[in-house]
Design a protein around this nucleic acid. Structure first.
Lengths: 151, 151
DNA sequence: TCCGAAGTTCAGCCTAGGCTAAGTTATGGC
DNA sequence: GCCATAACTTAGCCTAGGCTGAACTTCGGA
């Protein structure tokens, strides 16, 4: 009688491999998304995004920020004027906007399923990079239903 | 009227840093969990866990598996008998069991909020490593309610 | 004006986790 | 019993993302 997913724990090897590959792909983009999202927030709320502030908020050394920003610049997401602040390219702004929308959706979703706001905020940081489009759509439907009064 | 979480996008720098640190911590353990979980599955369902099969299923070269298994061994999670299969230590078995329970919970939860089984299975692979204890408890409560008929 | 502190970058190091290519070891078929 | 093949390991390389410590810019105040 139990046709629960737990039983079928060994999918075909190919499918299995594809999942993990997708996973690794998501991991690679996660850092970029976190950085551009934070840069966008700082630009909006502080007027400028300084490396030292990124370092403080990412909990990382300034040297690490320099290196990471270098990669983002190479990838066409960020522009820097040495010893001035950090700026986003169009691509960077687009990524930041998408990341923020996704982040906010995940937070609202987590709250809708019963998390407190602070925990939701924390968990979203990790979960937002690993939810597929389909999952995000499901989250959005769920949140819409809940917020429409389907309490 | 909007007291939505989206507004407060800049938490105190310290809190912010802590979130990202937690995040990096989760990333570090994710690989270990995936490997021991898969090894446990293979041992249970195939009777043995061969490196070549891990490589196939992780979508990775055998050399990578050798290296990763070496780290797991160093960390006391796995035992190997060269040219025999891979085995889990007590710690490895415990981690595998916890990982599997978490994985299954996340899958059931995703299905409960409206995902199809296949997508749920895929997304769980990524999400399971980034959900906090509190979030998992909330997921469990939610699933319990749903499965109890609160459809 | 100049000088010190804050911010930034550079140099050099490390680990995890990927890869390929080239061995080495076990095993099954003949 | 030998040897081809499959499984595994080793060597060497790469990138991302961490670190420290030292050097370099910028800028405000004395």
């Amino acid at each position: 009688m139990k046709r629960s997913p737990a039983v079928r724990s060994l999918p075909p090897a190919d499918d299995h491999a594809v999942r993990f590959a997708r996973q690794r792909e998501a991991d690679r983009t996660a850092t970029a998304e976190d950085y551009v999202e934070l840069i966008a927030d700082l630009l909006r709320e502080e007027g400028e995004a300084r490396a030292v502030e990124l370092a403080r908020r990412m909990g990382v050394s300034q040297a690490t920020v320099t290196a990471t920003v270098g990669r983002l610049q190479r990838d066409g997401l960020v522009e820097t004027k040495p010893y001035r602040g950090l700026f986003l390219t169009d691509a960077g702004r687009a990524m930041a906007q998408a990341a923020k929308a996704r982040h906010d959706l995940v937070v609202r979703f987590l709250i809708a399923v019963g998390l407190d706001a602070e925990t939701a905020e924390q968990d979203a940081e990790g979960l937002e990079h690993h939810a597929s489009e389909k999952a995000l759509e499901a989250f959005a439907r769920f949140v819409a239903k809940r917020e429409a009064g389907g309490a």
